[in-house]
């Protein structure tokens, strides 16, 4: 084992200082050290997308980022953006459309969809599919998710006009 290091990370707006082994991934840090278990571990090689969190404003793979790399950074997880209400419209659309079944991919899917809508407030269905193509969902077959994102986008842009 190698000596652990102290890191300070602002997680969901709260500054936390914890000692972690350098090898610990950001998602393991969030789950095990902070108790934020809404970010999930699916493949640990960056393919399934279940661990997606927001690091300094951009979505990243929590399994392909080390906790020590997040030292001094700002991290938002599904719990934080739920409590802040930031993605409420997307969440509501997912619930209304049953765009989640087991719910294991859902937190990451929502964070990814939120990143899409920030970049592109009125995406086409193929654009939605493409943006979400790094997030594996084994349950839904994706159509309900695409519907929900499309509907949330339409609600959000409609509300703004």
């Amino acid at each position: 084992m190698t000596p652990s290091r102290e890191i300070s990370v602002t997680v969901n707006g709260e500054r936390v200082t914890v000692r972690v082994e350098p090898r610990k991934s950001l998602v393991d840090f969030l789950r095990e050290d902070i108790g934020l278990t809404g970010s999930h571990v699916g493949c640990e090689q960056g393919v399934c997308g279940a661990c997606t969190v927001r690091l300094n404003g951009a979505i990243v793979r929590g399994c392909l980022t080390l906790a020590v790399q997040a030292d001094g950074a700002e991290v938002w997880t599904i719990e934080g953006v739920s409590d802040s209400g930031e993605i409420a419209a997307l969440q509501q659309a997912f619930l209304a459309r049953n765009a989640l079944q087991c719910g294991f991919c859902t937190p990451a899917m929502l964070l990814t969809a939120a990143a899409l809508l920030k970049e592109n407030p009125a995406p086409t269905r193929p654009e939605i599919r493409e943006y979400l193509s790094g997030n594996f969902c084994r349950c839904t077959g994706y159509q309900a998710i695409v519907d929900a994102v499309e509907s949330a986008a339409s609600d959000m842009t409609g509300a703004g006009s």
Binding site: R31, T37, G38, S82, Q91
Partner: peptide, 17 residues
Amino acid sequence: PRPNTRRLAEGRGAFTD
């Protein structure tokens, strides 16, 4: 709508891990 989905969509599920 399913009664148990909101908590899953908020990352408040209770998966075994």
